[in-house]
Write a protein that binds this DNA or RNA. Sequence first.
DNA 1: TAAATAATAGTAATTATTACTAATAAGGAG
DNA 2: CTCCTTATTAGTAATAATTACTATTATTTA
Lengths: 131, 131
Amino acid sequence: MQRFSQQRERIYEAVRTSMEHPTAQMVYDALRPEMPRLSLGTVYRNLHQMAQEGRLRELEGSVARFDAVLPPHAHIRCVRCGQVADLALPYDPALDREAVGGGWAVTGYELVFNGVCPTCGAEQLSENQRV
Amino acid sequence: MQRFSQQRERIYEAVRTSMEHPTAQMVYDALRPEMPRLSLGTVYRNLHQMAQEGRLRELEGSVARFDAVLPPHAHIRCVRCGQVADLALPYDPALDREAVGGGWAVTGYELVFNGVCPTCGAEQLSENQRV
DNA sequence: TAAATAATAGTAATTATTACTAATAAGGAG
DNA sequence: CTCCTTATTAGTAATAATTACTATTATTTA
């Protein structure tokens, strides 16, 4: 049976209160000061467990990121620094229907925009001015 | 200056003639019989280089996959076995406009459906029947 | 053909993630 | 409340994907 765990709740809170769709490492780094005994394996295990339970949402990528906002929504990822942000685009169920075919059972979709975040865009600008 | 390389061309051909959006490892395994001296690092280096040049398209994921079909199009990934297939859904430029805001410079989007491929679907079916 | 240097092969190193095991701590039974 | 069962953890080792490094090879230009 699933038991309560102090660590799991803190990990969940760390994701919930973060705006940056943190990676496992980021969650670990954020909690370490208050929980010096916390183990990185515990963070990974609980993040995946909660994602499987549907308590968190996992975003694939070269490094996995996690999101406590469950209703399906789009994301935008900075091609420079890799940060991810939410987008308020509504989920379009019609798209799922369009994808059906070829014997696949469609369960949903991920819509991820690429772009340059405000921070990286500003850096690039100042680089150009420097030249 | 960029020089011609036998290996790069073979790597490109391997991606182009494959229907399965191969990973670096898959390209390496496919070419190894004909090019026993080929190095995995060479495959990685050239795949990324060609992706940067726009000669290939890179699909992010826990394992990166590559696609020689350049016009933007949607993909579907099997949540069981990880295989990726193309979808003939047209790219919708209107979506890019909807994503603009918050100081981000939007460059495009990736639309990846999740689902169960025919193969994995059939396996699951026979499992159920077995019980 | 020869010199200059991009690209490679082979290997080592790094990063993200998972696996393993003894110790810890939920939480239900008595 | 105390004890027992076992889920969960910390700490560490192992694995997988990817990148870095360096001597050697191969392409290109003079």
